[in-house]
């Protein structure tokens, strides 16, 4: 859309204040959520601990479905944090947007491609790192020429398409959700009270759907991250 952002130059790098603030807010929210739920950890779990354990079981299930042989236990924490962070990020822009003087400061961080690319980079770097760790550097390189040699260019290309589809799928879904929400907002303001009342249920429906999309996309991103990692760690 036509949002304007403040930029800050630091150490020769350019920072988008809106992105960084949103990431920070999401991270703090995730931490507060998890911190609050894990205060009284006991053998017989209370309500809060039950919720947290349910979430942990859920993300452990994602990891297990990608790596059923139990080798994925080291990724349980990563999947948990990734899922929660993306979920909270997706929901953030739906109910919490800060605009001051025409500049956006807080929105869904995942509605920016750079942020989703950053997350995808983390996942894919992890997959490459563990592949090298498992097969050695030579084995890792030779895996690109499997199962047959002429697939080498396709396998190389796949690395880039994986990166782009993983990041842009998340970005596209969340960005589209915010765009449509903003469009409904402009419709509401266009003809006074009549359109405001008419747009209200539309906005509510779309917000509900966006919550659903946000949850699904967090799940998809986590699942695909685990699938990419598991595919790197097995020899075809």
């Amino acid at each position: 859309m036509d949002d304007k952002y403040k930029f800050v130059e630091f150490l020769g790098l350019r920072f988008n204040v809106a992105n960084d603030l949103s990431v920070l807010v999401s991270a703090v929210l995730v931490f507060i959520l998890v911190f609050a739920l894990s205060r009284k950890v006991t053998m017989r779990p209370g309500k809060a601990q039950n919720v947290l354990e349910w979430m942990i079981d859920f993300t452990n299930g994602i990891v297990k479905s990608a790596m059923p042989d139990g080798s994925g236990k080291q990724f349980n924490l990563y999947a948990f944090v990734l899922f929660l962070f993306i979920f909270v990020s997706n929901q953030l822009g739906l109910f919490f947007q800060v605009k001051v003087g025409g500049f956006t400061y807080v929105k869904s961080p995942t509605s920016n491609p750079l942020i989703t690319m950053g997350l995808a980079t983390v996942s894919l770097l992890l997959s490459h790192y563990y592949a090298v760790k498992k097969f050695g550097f030579g084995g890792y390189l030779s895996n690109y020429a499997r199962p047959v040699k002429f697939l080498l260019p396709i396998n190389l290309l796949e690395e880039f398409t994986n990166f782009l589809t993983l990041s842009l799928r998340l970005y596209g879904n969340i960005f589209a959700g915010e765009v449509l929400l903003a469009l409904i907002g402009t419709v509401a303001k266009s003809f006074g009270a009549v359109t405001f009342v008419a747009a209200m249920p539309l906005a509510m429906v779309w917000q509900g759907f966006s919550v659903f999309i946000g949850a699904i996309q967090a799940y998809v991103f986590t699942t695909l991250s685990m699938v990419y990692i598991s595919r790197k760690m097995e020899q075809e």
Binding site: V23, A27, L114
Partner: peptide, 17 residues
Amino acid sequence: VALGDMLFILISFIILA
């Protein structure tokens, strides 16, 4: 292009984890 954002999310994600 604000490439610093990628660095920022990388660091904040690691700290969060």
